[in-house]
Design a protein around this nucleic acid. Structure first.
Lengths: 106, 106
DNA sequence: GGTAAACGTAAGTAGTAACTTACCGTTCGT
DNA sequence: ACGAACGGTAAGTTACTACTTACGTTTACC
């Protein structure tokens, strides 16, 4: 059910969004705090956070008038698994090709 | 030197490109062969392959009139490392938050 | 209850990205 | 040498994305 995931790949492709996520992975922060650390406006941060939230990459916790965002490992799981698959497959294929053509000398 | 990397994140964010890469990770293929397996034209595949190549995610080997593309682990390395950093950081922060607020009941 | 802070959303814009068709160069086979 | 296969690039179009400013809503505080 939780596995709809609006594509964590696309969500983390944007540099600003990746920067936001990396900061939230270290420590939870409010929207205004994030905006103060970044070269974009606060609404821009809100929009990025929505994308991250739709990808299950962040969670929100209301705290008075502020909303504290934190990184959520859930959205990362599938992506991480797929990347590991890519990695091992690429490594295997790469090694096979390297053995198949042992040129380099001569 | 090889470590310029045109952002593997952005390169793999596109679904078609990710599909191309996943196929090349399993087995090397020519451009035409890739195009025949995908719902896009051959030039589109060529363009995707260029992006993947700029990100060091694929390599080419000429073979007669064909060009055989294969997945290259190089472009994946940095991205994989960064993702692992995200993962462990997110996990740690997530656990800390979970312990800090043991509500759920009441 | 009024004010201020925090945040989300609407509306509009500029830049980019993915795709198509058309064209050109290169390599192999006969 | 000629024709065909293969593939990269140019040009053009459409769609989306990241951003801004403006506005409305909610919560806290006095």
């Amino acid at each position: 059910m939780t596995t709809y995931a609006v594509d964590a790949w696309a969500a983390l492709a944007d540099p600003t969004r990746r920067e936001i996520f990396s900061r939230l992975a270290v420590r939870a922060r409010s929207v205004t705090e994030l905006a103060s650390e970044l070269p974009v406006s606060r609404p821009a941060v809100s929009q990025h956070l929505r994308v991250l939230k739709d990808a299950d990459l962040v969670r929100v916790r209301p705290e008075g008038t502020r909303r504290i965002y934190a990184a959520d490992p859930d959205g990362l799981r599938a992506m991480r698994a797929e990347l590991e698959t890519f990695w091992s497959a690429a490594l295997t294929t790469f090694k096979m090709l390297a053995e198949a053509e042992p040129q380099e000398s001569e």
